[in-house]
Simulated scan of single mutants.
Amino acid sequence: MTVSFGLYQAMPGGPTEAMKSVILSQSGSTGMDIDRLNTLIQLYTNVNPDQPVHVQYLNYVRDVVLYQDLGRSFFKNEKVTTLILQRLPWSMFISLYAFALGYSLSIILGVLTAYKEKSRFDSGVSSVVIALNSIPYYIVGVVLIYFLAIEQSYFPVGGRIGSGVPVGYNPDFMISLVKHAALPAISMGVLATSAALSMRGNAIRILGEDYVRVAQLRGLRDTRIATQYLGHNAILPMYTQFMIGIAGVFSSAVIVEEVFSYPGMGLLMFEAVKTQDYPLLMGTLIVFTAISLTAIFVADLTYSLIDPRISVDES
């Protein structure tokens, strides 16, 4: 909140003056009383431009923390909280979709490459993962649109569901929902594939443990050793990375939703930037930051529960 408020105050051209111009142009009047103008600005932003900056800041924090009031969008003329709650579930959906795709693939590839270390499979997969992480995820999105949506028409180009699809818990709606979110999720999931190399390193270290050698001597199948013995223990040190990855994947929605015209919170933030809708921009920035910090905080609190080998000093 402090950073967003500071950015708000430091924006070139003066956000307060910009909002005054917008309000005057929308009202069609150039001679509005200054007190009424300041009242309207306070209604939209929860900031009274006549007050000192520190008083504006304290009032803004009070309204956000105590009343969950992020102001009012003066382009959409709705409460910022309402607009965010309408879009947030869709952004969460494609983010979790991308997280599940990216990290599931990373875990599988990491374990398999470690188990087949120094083989052609190991070299090939490692090279592909490095190449994918060298390409910006939004470029991957553009490539996916061209080949899978425009050239082959396997997936729709944009939107959340197809036109004419009845909304509700029915197969047509579910299929349309998954198909429209597939390409954004795949392009965002590229961010998570870097975990495959970390998983590979952890798995190679665990391969030298005694319990893995005993399992091999017992003649257990390779798939069982790779999943139950190797994968399970190699994934534990990556728990924090996974939680931080949720924040990274979620924040990437700002660009991905614009590329795919997917109406989530990221596209809402992008629209706020284009229209200079400062209350909406500040609100979305605070929510994105809160989700990122919450994911990291939860990881710190729960890591010892996930991995019993980690003890907390209570002294």
Rank of each mutant, 00 (worst) to 15 (best):
A195L: 15
P166C: 00
R160L: 14
V165D: 06
L191T: 04
R160D: 01
I175L: 14
S176F: 05
A192E: 09
G164I: 00
G164M: 01
E151G: 04
V178S: 05
V157T: 14
S163F: 08
P184Q: 09
M188E: 11
I161E: 03
G162V: 06
G159C: 09
P156N: 11
L191P: 00
N170Y: 09
V178W: 02
P166F: 02
S187E: 10
K179Q: 15
T193L: 15
G162C: 09
G158P: 07
L177K: 06
S176I: 06
V167F: 02
D172I: 02
I161N: 05
H180V: 11
A195R: 06
I175M: 11
I186W: 08
P166W: 05
I161V: 15
P156H: 08
A185L: 03
A185I: 07
A185T: 06
S153Q: 15
P171N: 11
T193D: 04
G158D: 11
S176E: 02
A195H: 10
V190M: 14
P171F: 08
D172P: 04
G189I: 00
G168T: 07
A181C: 10
S194A: 12
A195I: 03
Q152A: 15
P156I: 10
A195C: 00
S194F: 01
R160T: 12
L177V: 09
S194N: 04
T193H: 00
V157Q: 11
V190N: 00
R160A: 10
Q152H: 12
I186R: 04
I175N: 06
A185V: 04
A181S: 14
A181D: 03
S194V: 08
G162L: 02
I175W: 13
G189W: 01
I186E: 08
Y169E: 11
S153M: 12
I175R: 11
S176M: 08
R160N: 10
Q152N: 14
I186L: 12
D172E: 15
P156L: 05
S194M: 04
P166K: 00
P171L: 13
V190F: 06
A185E: 02
E151Y: 13
S187K: 01
M188R: 03
G164C: 01
Q152D: 09
A195N: 12
